[in-house]
Simulated assay, not measured.
Amino acid sequence: MRLLVVTSQFPVAGEPTRGRPILQTVVELARLAEVRVLSPVARYPRWARPRSYLYQAPEPAAAIPGCEVVHVSYPALPMLSRPINGWLCGRALRAEARAFRPDVILSYWLYPDAAGALRVAGELGVALVAGARGSDIRVRDAISRRLTAPVVQKAGRLLVVSADLGRLATRDYGADPARVRVIANGCDADTFKLRDRAEARAALAVEPDSQLVLYVGRLVAEKGLRELVAATRALRDAHPRAELVLVGDGPLREELAQLARDPAQRLRLAGAQPADKVAQWMAASNLLALPSYSEGHPNVLVEALACGRPVVSCPVGGVPEVVDASCAVLVPPREVEALASALAAVLARDWDEQALSRRFSRRWGEVAMETLAACIEARDAHRAGKRE
């Protein structure tokens, strides 16, 4: 099968951790099919870039064995071009897609990526499989929902990372339940595994007696980072050795960096890191915190547990499908006091690291096989429909 993967959520030179779960899936898909990645990037004028958007030049971060990655860009303006961003994205994709002649287009991120891919798939007469990751389907405003709905309804198969997202797609967007496939993320068990905490701390210059709270992800307000900073600060009265390390990058970087300049905050920004360094930070930590307002299937929780580290998070989206009381404490989002109490409770508990690290054994090869099976279903159904 010739499979064209279309997604903006893919590593680029300036953001090597972008779309890591999709990258892991593509690496394994390339072992099973002929795969090309086409990654569209919105190109805003410098003076008009949204504050929530960190533009990175569309240059590949690294080669994928057996898979060509092509980056394209399209012009955009905040708010003004949003209704036509799907069309603009499709126009940017068209030439490369035609040259590759795919059997199926698999597009992660519903709008504008999959919307543009849907137009191109129609022109080429092939099936589209759309993948929803979380915030691309949990859109709040009516305009975005209206732009997203046609992709959800028309895709030959809709891949979601949690059952919660599948219910949302059916209930709020009119997705055909028969076309929805829940394909949870995997975990690179060769990278994310139980390691010696003392060794990891020595390598990262973390004090041996630190009570290290770790966050890994984009630096955006929706991840509850302001609440996490405040909760860690409140925690320090009873736990003076508590410190917070943020691994990642995003629009809140400068705001958080300003706080980190005060040594009393005990806040460190480690920046975006490759997977092996993320695993090292997890090994060095006491717990991983992800107090998001909404989530899909947060792979960082799976990875933290694989490293033998407990979790503090919120019962939103697919989080309750990943963790339970045996490995995590869940608190309502946006509540600083509850978050501080949860952090204290996890730090005070004696966790069985071996038991935590054995919770997940799902590898990315399984994710790729399930994804390819959904693509084959969509291809065959599309061809059968054309014959009727």
Rank of each mutant, 00 (worst) to 15 (best):
E96M: 03
D352Q: 11
A374N: 08
K154Q: 15
L372C: 10
P332I: 14
R138D: 12
E303S: 12
L168C: 05
L235G: 04
G296E: 02
P102Q: 09
V323H: 09
V120D: 06
A342Y: 08
A328C: 09
D172R: 10
G385E: 14
L124Y: 09
P21F: 13
S341D: 15
A76H: 02
V331E: 10
T17R: 14
P11W: 01
A289S: 08
A221R: 14
A115I: 06
G131P: 00
A283K: 07
A175G: 07
Y44C: 13
Q153F: 09
R46I: 10
Q258Y: 01
H382Q: 11
A325I: 00
E337F: 00
P251Y: 05
L212V: 12
Y108E: 14
V336H: 07
R236F: 04
D352M: 10
V37Y: 03
A342N: 08
P65T: 01
V161R: 03
W47Q: 15
E370Q: 15
D262A: 11
P298V: 12
P65S: 02
A340L: 02
L256Q: 02
L93H: 02
I137T: 07
A42T: 08
V278C: 09
A381D: 14
R359S: 05
V5A: 12
A231Y: 04
Q280I: 00
A202N: 03
P320C: 03
A260C: 13
A92D: 04
V37M: 07
A242F: 01
G66T: 07
P320D: 12
